[in-house]
Structures are given as C-alpha cells and as structure tokens.
Design a protein around this nucleic acid. Structure first.
Length: 491
RNA sequence: GGGGAUAUCGUCUAGAGGUUAGGACGAGGGAUUUUCAGUCCUUAAGCCGGGGUUCGAUUCCCCGUAUCCCUACCA
C-alpha cells in the first residue's frame, strides 16, 4: 500500500518549529516512499483565546518557505476534500451517532463546575484523576429528562474497563497500557465540534492515512485512539511518536528560550535549507555514515523512521546559526544579495523601493560580507558603514581612533593616499593595493601600518572585508571624501 | 497522586557483548597575517547509580534515580 502521511496543524498561531519538524518528517517519508503528503487544518477548537484564523496564512507560508509543498491541502484541493475540519462536521456527527447507538459512546450532561469539583476532590484525596463515569451509567429516565430539557451535553467514548492495549510504535517498539486506567475521552464537545481524538481518527481513516507521525506528547492518548479504531472496526495506521524538542533548560521549547515560531526564524534570516537540515537532525541521524551537512535530496535518500531517536533533543541555537552561516557562505552571491536587500530597505539604508543605483551598490558590497553572516538580518550592521555618513570622529569607533589616528605617519599617509587615489587611472582592487604598497614603502612603514589606519579612516571601524575590496566597493568618490574629512580634522 | 517514555562529551548524535567509545556545534591552542570572519591543524570534554547474565558489559535483563510528556468540552 502506498504511503500516505498527513500534517495536521491547528490555527492557533504561527507554526512552532516542533510542528514544522513533524511536517518535514512527513514530507520526507512521502518523498522517500513515493507516497502522498496531505495537510489538513484542525480547526475544531473555537475558543476565542486560541482560535486564530489569521495564522492559517502563516501555516501556508511556512510550508512554502521550507519548500515542503503538500500534494493535497485546502489551498489546492484534492480528492479528500474538504481539508478543513470545521467543514466536515456532519461526518463526525454521523460516526458519533453510530457509536452511541452501539453503546461505545454516551452522552454526558455533567457541568464544567461538577467536573472541576470532581477533579479537585480527586487531587485532595491523592487518587488518580479522570472522569468518574457518572453519565455512563445514567438511569434511562434521567437521560430522557435531560434530553427533554435540552441540557447541553458532550459525547464521551466508553473505554473498556479491563484488558490491555498494545501499541506497536514505529520508533518506540511495543508499548502496553491498561485500558482501565484510560479516561472516557470526550469525542464531541457541547458546541457540536469534535475533539482531536474523534476528528483526527475519522479523517485519517477517510483520507486513507497510512502513517501517523506526531509528537511524543500524544503517546499517552494512543490507547484511546486505538480503542476507537477497534470499535469502529477500522485498521489502525502505523504510529510513530517523535521525540519532543526541549529548550536549553530541558523544558519543552517555548518562547522563553528565544524564537520558537516560524515567523521569528524567517525574520532573523534563516535559509530554508539550513532550517530543514538542522531540524531534521534534531531527532534523526544518518547512522554510521555520520554526516550532518546534507542537501535535501541527500536527506530524502537516507530518511527512514528507523533512524529517528527516542530521546528528547535540546534545541541548540548556536548550532543552527553555524549551519545557517554555512549555507549562506555556499550560496550564490546574487541570491544572498537579493535576500538581504529587504533588510536594508527596512533599516532605512536603501529607499523603498531602492533605486537602480542603490541596487547596483548593494550588489557590490553585500557579497563582500557574505562569509561573515550567520543570519541574513546581520547584514544591516555589517554593511552599515558603506551607507552612513561617518562624520569624523563621532561616527567612528573610539578604540579604533585611539589606536590608529594618532600614529606618527598618519597625516603623510592620508595625504599620499589622496593624491595617489585621485590620479589612479583605474579604480580596481589591484590598482588600489599597488598604490598603497608603494606608499608604505615610501613612508618606510609596514604594510599593516598602511592598511589599519586606512581602514579606520574610511570605514570608522577595525573589522570588515579586505581593505582594497572595501575601498573598491565604496567607490573612489566616497573613499576620497572620507580620507579628506579625516585629514581635515587631524590638521 | 496516576500513567507512559527516555538516559553516551556542555549540546546534537554514532556505535558495538571485547573499540584508543567516532563525528558535529560550542570551548581552548596553533597556522594563514590585511583586521574580523572563513579555512586548515590541534587539545580538553562522555557511556546516571546498584544489582544480575557473561570469561568479559557502557551495550542484554531487573531495580533505583533523574529528566521529559500526558493526566481539559486544547491540540
């Protein structure tokens, strides 16, 4: 049977990297096995504080950005339509009616207040918590009366009171559960919407899903779903429970640890291939081959559920940065330039939209800083000196001035450079370097004693790309202007 | 309180009944000298504890401990 996997996000905010990793694994499995990758929107939680329909666009964008496009989803449709659970309500209602008729599920009229009190009492007494099943054994005339009164109700799954459930997990092997310890899970809420347990089970079945990849936090609820499959007489798909991703304090990754949602990573400038490569490695490895830097195709070739780790992984932002830097460095300069320009526009360094001259300038300077970038957003600080008026000495690094603007040969150096640069037939890195070396010899100082003061005078700082590439990119006019300004202040 | 999962350098991980326990990030040192970054070389750093099984366990089993997850009309 062909593999069919699904990613089933909820519109409760910008996607979390943990969910994205699940989506990546889903996509990889589908690609590897020549199967189908389906994405379904699980929008059954309508409570105003969680339901965030505007995040649907984020979900779509995250998949597009990563390049893990679904074979079928609500955006492009497909043969399992609709892909949005709120549009599938009648399907769930029908299943629930059948379950009630067969005694596998029952209406529960308990109020939230009663359930709350029950839970509190259970906690005080130190006994296992869970629904006390009062409505499971409700006398018939009570139920008839409640129904006649139109009391709100939920539908609960009647779990077996004995026996064990054996889950065969693709990453964890066999896990056993006692049915009697399982709660009578709510399947249908009082607002008529299904819960995850019902909706996901029904949809996975109707959509022909063969493998369910989900976070380990779902492991404990597997027996409820397996029981549902059993009473519905459906064959259960393969379950694969993925290790959770933790923050540096070993707690479930959350906003406290820094960025966790897709949007934040994009804004900081992480490349899709870096995100995928890093996320994939958080819980999966190539095994003996021992490689970490892998292209998408190399990952697809090697991917398998058996390579998935069983223990939680801590999200290492440093390693992600390193990996992103690696992918930036190995990208075509044109691509990085294009990706960086919006950051410069946003920072006000370029007009909105940028003029052709500005774009040409950006194309000259951004590649010079490419190997220094870990994330794209750093470009703003890295190339700032190319754009800003330096205004000696205020715009200059204090320590840089202290170290190099007071050296004995500074005035002679600047004077000679201005004269030499003015008369240079061609403004090329080679010509600039040759002239600079000649000046150094004339002055009888070491080459470094030419380079460092010149760098400070023209850039205001001590770090940056190679000096002659910098001056070349800066252009003859800007270079001369900066040298003259500094010289004027020194005189 | 109950249930479940997991346990190899600080972090991500590989690994096998006998290995100098391998790689990567990060950290330290060195080289390249036009700074920073990069690149190359290099060093330090690990099998949770206790019982078994075994000639031999870090590896297999049990117990303990620790950590994480679940225990909602959220997913």
């Amino acid at each position: 049977m062909a593999v069919k996997v699904r990613y089933a996000p909820s519109p409760t905010g910008s996607p979390h990297v943990g969910n994205l990793r699940t989506a990546i694994y889903d996509w990889l499995l589908a690609k590897k096995e020549g199967g189908e990758f389906l994405v379904r929107l699980e929008d059954t939680d309508r409570s105003p504080d969680r339901y965030a329909p505007e995040s649907i666009a984020d979900i779509e964008e995250s998949l597009r950005y990563l390049g893990i496009l679904p074979d079928s989803w609500w955006v492009t449709g497909g043969k399992d339509t609709p892909y949005v659970q709120s549009e599938r309500l009648p399907l769930y209602a029908e299943i629930v009616e059948g379950l009630i008729a067969q005694g596998h599920a029952y209406k529960c009229f308990c109020t939230k207040e009663r359930l709350e009190q029950m839970r509190q009492r259970q906690q005080e007494l130190g006994i296992p918590s869970g629904y006390d099943r009062r409505c499971r054994n409700l006398p018939l005339d009570d139920r008839a009366r409640y129904e006649a009164e139109n009391l709100p109700y939920v539908v609960r799954l009647a779990m077996p009171l004995e026996g064990t459930c054996l889950l065969k997990d693709a990453v964890r092997g066999e896990v056993k559960y006692e049915y009697r310890l399982q709660d009578d899970q709510v399947l249908l809420k009082s607002d008529g919407f299904p819960t995850y347990f019902l909706a996901a089970t029904v949809d996975d079945r109707l959509m022909g899903i063969t493998h369910i990849l989900r976070g380990e936090e779902w492991l404990g609820s597997a027996p409820k779903m397996i029981h549902l499959y059993n009473v519905l007489e459906w064959e259960a798909p393969v379950f694969a429970h993925l290790p959770v991703i933790l923050g540096t304090d070993r707690k479930k990754l959350s906003k406290r640890h820094g960025s966790t949602n897709f949007r934040a990573f994009i804004e900081q400038g992480y490349l899709p291939e870096a995100l995928i490569n890093f996320l994939v490695l958080l819980g999966w490895s190539t095994g003996e081959e021992n490689r970490e830097l892998l292209s998408i195709n190399e990952i697809i070739e090697r991917f398998s559920l058996s390579g998935i780790t069983e223990h939680p992984a801590i999200f290492d932002y440093e390693k992600l940065k390193w990996m992103n830097g690696h992918y930036i460095r190995s990208s075509q300069p044109g691509r990085i330039t294009g990706l960086c320009i919006p950051y410069l526009v946003k920072a006000g360094l370029l007009s909105n939209p940028p003029t052709p001259e500005e774009v040409a300038y950006a194309r000259r300077i951004i590649p010079l800083e490419q190997e220094r970038m870990k994330v794209l957003s750093e470009v703003v600080d890295l190339v700032g000196f190319f754009f800003k008026e330096l205004n000696y000495p205020n715009g200059y690094d204090e320590k840089a001035i202290a170290k190099w603007m007071g050296v004995a040969h500074i005035k002679a150096l600047l004077e000679k450079e201005i004269a030499a640069f003015e008369s240079l037939p061609e403004w090329t890195t080679e010509a600039i370097e040759a002239a600079s070396r000649a000046i150094g010899e004339e002055l009888g100082v070491k080459f470094a004693e030419v380079v460092h003061p010149t760098r400070v005078a023209t850039t205001g700082q001590t770090v940056g790309p190679g000096l002659f590439e910098t001056l070349w990119a800066l252009g003859r006019e800007r270079t001369l202007e900066r040298l003259r300004t500094v010289l004027a202040h020194l005189s």
